[in-house]
Design a protein around this nucleic acid. Sequence first.
DNA 1: CATGAATGAGGGTTCATTCAT
DNA 2: GATGAATGAACCCTCATTCAT
Lengths: 191, 191, 191, 191
Amino acid sequence: MINTTSKRAILLETSLELFVDQGIQKTSMALISEKSQVAVGTIYHHFKSKEELIEGVYLEILESLGKHIAFTHEEEQLDFKSRFDLLWRKGYDYYTQFPNRFRFHDTYSYSPLISNQLREYARGYYQVAFDLIQEGIREGMLINTNPVLIMRWLYNSLSTIIQIKLNHEFEVTEDMVSTTLEMAWKSLTYK
Amino acid sequence: MINTTSKRAILLETSLELFVDQGIQKTSMALISEKSQVAVGTIYHHFKSKEELIEGVYLEILESLGKHIAFTHEEEQLDFKSRFDLLWRKGYDYYTQFPNRFRFHDTYSYSPLISNQLREYARGYYQVAFDLIQEGIREGMLINTNPVLIMRWLYNSLSTIIQIKLNHEFEVTEDMVSTTLEMAWKSLTYK
Amino acid sequence: MINTTSKRAILLETSLELFVDQGIQKTSMALISEKSQVAVGTIYHHFKSKEELIEGVYLEILESLGKHIAFTHEEEQLDFKSRFDLLWRKGYDYYTQFPNRFRFHDTYSYSPLISNQLREYARGYYQVAFDLIQEGIREGMLINTNPVLIMRWLYNSLSTIIQIKLNHEFEVTEDMVSTTLEMAWKSLTYK
Amino acid sequence: MINTTSKRAILLETSLELFVDQGIQKTSMALISEKSQVAVGTIYHHFKSKEELIEGVYLEILESLGKHIAFTHEEEQLDFKSRFDLLWRKGYDYYTQFPNRFRFHDTYSYSPLISNQLREYARGYYQVAFDLIQEGIREGMLINTNPVLIMRWLYNSLSTIIQIKLNHEFEVTEDMVSTTLEMAWKSLTYK
DNA sequence: CATGAATGAGGGTTCATTCAT
DNA sequence: GATGAATGAACCCTCATTCAT
C-alpha cells in the first residue's frame, strides 16, 4: 500500500513536470512511463485513462493548495485586512514553492482539457477565499461588486507577480511583492 | 491573387476557431482542411508546417490588435488619464469584438507552443502601451514600479472582466466594466 | 521471447522480399505490415524507423554471409589455391541459395540508403576474404596490387555469374561457374 | 527551339545530379523544378511523367556513351587487341569524365525503376561491344563462353576501378588502370 | 510554351490503450 | 498488482500530377 501510494505520487509528479515542460498533448504515456520508471500498464492501474491522469494532477494541485491556504483557528481571529493579506501571501508562498503547480494551473485551468464540471468541483478547495471576499463585501470593507470578479482579480494579481518571478524577466524583490499586494488591496477598497 | 489572399485569411480564421474550441493539439490539419474547404496540401502551400500556422494565427491577432489600439494624432493630444482610459477601452473593445482572438491569446500566449522568440517579436505590436506606461511613471502619474509589472497588471485587469463576459458567468454591465477600469487605475496611482 | 525473436525475423524476411521486388522506397511500412501480418506499430517496437529496418536487413545478410564463408579449422590447413577456390565457391553457394540476399546486396550496398558508417562496420563480416587476399599478395601468389581492388574484383566476378543465373538470361552450367572462377584466378596471378 | 532543347538538357542534367546524390525517389519534382529554375508545369511539358524523366536520363547516358565508344573508320582497321584495349579505355574515359553518369548507371541500371523493355532497347547503344566480343570468340582470340557473360565481365572490370576512383578509397594511378585492363584481358584469353 | 497554386492519396511515425504473462 | 509487447487509428506532412491563367 505504501508502494501504491508512492507510485501514484510519483506518477502525478512526473506527469506535472512533463506537462508543464512540453505540453500535455505532447507528453505521451510512454514518456511518463519511462521518466517515472513505472510500466505503462501500471499507469493504467492507477488512472483509468490519460484524461483521468490529467484530472488527477489538476485536483491534487488544488487540494494541496486548499490545505495550504486554510486558516488556523488562531488566524480566524485576525482582523479582515490581516486575513486578506495572509491569504494572498499564502497563495504567493504556495505557488512560489511549487512553480510547476503554478505553471500547470496558469496554463491549463481554462483550457478545454479541463472540463467545466471538474473546474466547478475544484472550486470547493478555495472556498475559503470566496468566504473572505463575501465577508468583506458584507462588512463594507471591499467594494460592492460581483465576488467572482473579485476572486479573479485577486488570482490575477497573484499571477502577475508570480509569472514575472518564474520567467526571470527581472528580479522580484520583497518590496515588489508587497507593492503588488497593496495594489490589489487598494483597487478593491473604497479609499 | 485575390483568391490566394483569401485562402490564407480563411485558413487563419478557421484555425483560430478550431484552436480555441478544442485546443491546438487536438485540432488536426485534416480537420482544418475540411472546415475551411481547402485541401491539406494547399494549407502547406501557405504555411510550411502546423507550427507556422499557429504562429500565423498568433501574429495576425497581435498585428490587428496593434492597429486597433494605436492612437490617432488627435488622441495623442489628450491628457494622460484620458489616454490611459482610451487604451484600456480599446483593448476591451477589440477583445470583446473578437472573442476567439481573446481566448486564443489568453490560452496560448504563454504556452510552450509559442516560442519565446516569437513572443519577443510580437512585443512591438503593443509598444504603444509600454510607451504610455513609461510616460506615466516618468511624469509621476503612475506608481514607480517596473513597467513590465504594470503592463501585465493592466492586461490581467482587462482579462479578468473579459473572461467573465465571455464565459457568461454572469451578465457584465457597463458599470462593471468601468468599475474594473477604475480598479486598475486606482491600484496604479498614488492617491 | 520466442515470439519476439520470430517477429523480428519475419519482418526482416518480408522486408527483404519487398525491397528486392519493388524497391526500398516504393515499399511502404503499411505494406510490410500487411504482408508480414504484424501491426505497423509493432514494427516500430522492433525497429525505431524505416531506416533502421533497412539497416537491419543489410546487417543480417552480411552477418549470415560472414558465418557461411568462415573457414573451419581443417579448411585453414589447405593450400592457398584451394582456399581461394573454397572462398569463392562459398560465396557463390550462399548467394545462390539466398537469391534475394544477393539482389539486395547488389542493388543497395552502394546506394545512398546505406550509410558509409554502416558499410564500414559491415566490413568486419568479410574480413576473412581480405585476410586471404593479403596473404596471397605477401606470399607472391597474387599480383601485387591494392587489396581493395582485388576484393572488388572478386566480388564482381561472383556477381557477374550470379546476376546471369538469377536473371535467367541463359542456363548457367557448372562448367560456366568453374570457367568464371578460373577467369578470376587467372587474372589475379602472374602466369 | 534552342530554348526548348536547352531546358530539356538542363532538366536532364539537374535530375541526374539529384538522383545520384539523394536517390531517385527522394528527389521530388518540386526539387528538380527549384534547382533547375524551371517551373513544375514546364517539366511536364518536356516529360509526361517522372517515370519518363527517369527514362530520359537513362537513355541519354547510354546514347551519349554509345557515341563516345563508337569506332572511327581508322580505328576499325586496328588489330583485335588494339580495339579491345581501345574500347575499354573509351569506356573508362567516358565514365571518368562524367562521374554522375557512371553512378547513375551503376546504381539504377538493374533497379526495378528501369523496365526490362527499356534495358533491352538500350542494348543497341553498346552493340559495338557485343560485336567485338563475338568477333573475338569467332576468331579464337577470346575464350569460348557466352558473350553475355563476357560483356558483363568487361563492364564489371571497368566498374571495379571506376568505383574505387570515384569513392576516393585510394589514389588510382595510370599503372593501376592498365593493370586492371590487363587483368580483364588475361582472364578472357587462352594464354 | 510557361507558370505555380491547388489537389488528396499515400507516406512514415506516434500513441492511448489493451491484455497475456 | 505489475509488466511491456502488440495494436491500428490518427497524426503531420510530401508529392506527382493537373489546370486555369
